[in-house]
Computed example of a mutant assay.
Amino acid sequence: MRPLAKKTKQINNQRKLITKTQPKSPISEQYKTIRTNINFSSVDDEIRSLMVSSAGPGEGKSTTAANLAVVFAQEGKKVLLVDADMRKPTAHYTFGLNNTFGLTNVLTRQKELMDVTNTTDLSDMDVLTCGPIPPNPAELLSSRAMVHFLEEAYKNYSKVIFDTPPILAVSDGQVLANQCDGTILVISSGTTEIEGAQKAKETLDAAKAKLLGVVLNNREFKDTSYYYYYGKK
């Protein structure tokens, strides 16, 4: 990779992790608001596992998942961000990690979870990359191995955040949704069509997902992108 291209990629990744690079910015404050709403979304049971998805591609679900993981870690919770988008994984790019081994190796019993997690420069946050792209993502995510994975993850982390493929594109998110304590749906202002957002919600409801709320991404206000959260109605 050419030096200029590499530098541009590093800058773009820093922008994606705004909660880490600019923790006091207005956008970072919005992520903290989302965190607060998630914390108070269930009075009786703590949200230990959280799935973040979108209706379609390019709506910001991976950026949202990464920044939510950061703000939960900043709160002092031990957090594991899992790249469960086995179609188009991006976490290893965002955090500058090697993707040789990851989630797929754990689910196929080739590796143990704690042997392939990656530490970050945030003391309370680890990242599990996707690993080799498998031919059967939905089957892996719905397997008994995923149940075992969650059991192991809960022993070491207080919060497990999954970045999953778009709900309307493939069935991967649907099969994982009912295994997680909560789901956040990301939609992009000016990009996501109302019909698509409604269809995504209906799909999650059919999968018996616990939809906690929606993040409206890329809503411009005074030339700044803000992230708004509102609970499920």
Rank of each mutant, 00 (worst) to 15 (best):
L176K: 03
E152S: 03
A138V: 05
Q179K: 15
V160S: 08
D115G: 09
L140M: 06
D181T: 09
V160G: 08
S142Q: 00
K155N: 10
L176D: 06
L122A: 13
V116G: 05
P166N: 08
A153Y: 00
L128T: 04
E151P: 05
P165V: 03
D163R: 08
A145M: 04
A169E: 12
M125L: 15
R144H: 14
V160Q: 06
T129Q: 08
D172Q: 06
K111H: 08
C130V: 14
C130T: 14
S158A: 12
K159C: 14
V170I: 12
E112T: 14
L168T: 01
E139C: 01
N118K: 15
L150V: 13
A138T: 09
L140C: 01
Q179G: 14
A169K: 11
C130P: 10
P134A: 00
E112I: 14
N156Q: 12
L168P: 00
A153K: 03
A153D: 05
L141F: 03
P135L: 01
E152F: 00
R144C: 10
Y154H: 15
K155F: 01
H148V: 09
A153P: 04
D126Y: 13
N118S: 15
A145D: 09
D163V: 10
E152V: 08
L113N: 04
F149Y: 10
V170A: 12
Q174L: 12
P137L: 02
S143F: 01
V175A: 10
T120N: 07
I161P: 02
K155R: 12
Q174S: 14
L140V: 00
M125N: 06
L150D: 10
A138E: 04
Q174N: 11
I167Q: 00
S142M: 05
P137V: 07
P165W: 03
V147A: 03
N156C: 05
D121I: 11
P166L: 07
A153M: 04
E151G: 12
G131R: 02
V170D: 10
T129F: 00
E152G: 05
C180H: 12
P137A: 03
Y154K: 15
M125D: 09
P135D: 06
N118P: 11
G131F: 07
F149W: 04
N178G: 12
K111C: 10
P166G: 09
K159G: 12
C130L: 11
Q110D: 12
D115N: 13
M125G: 12
L176E: 03
V175C: 11
S158W: 01
S158I: 11
C130K: 09
I161N: 04
G173R: 11
E112W: 06
P134N: 07
M146H: 07
N178H: 15
E139Y: 01
H148K: 13
L113G: 08
F162A: 02
R144I: 14
E139H: 06
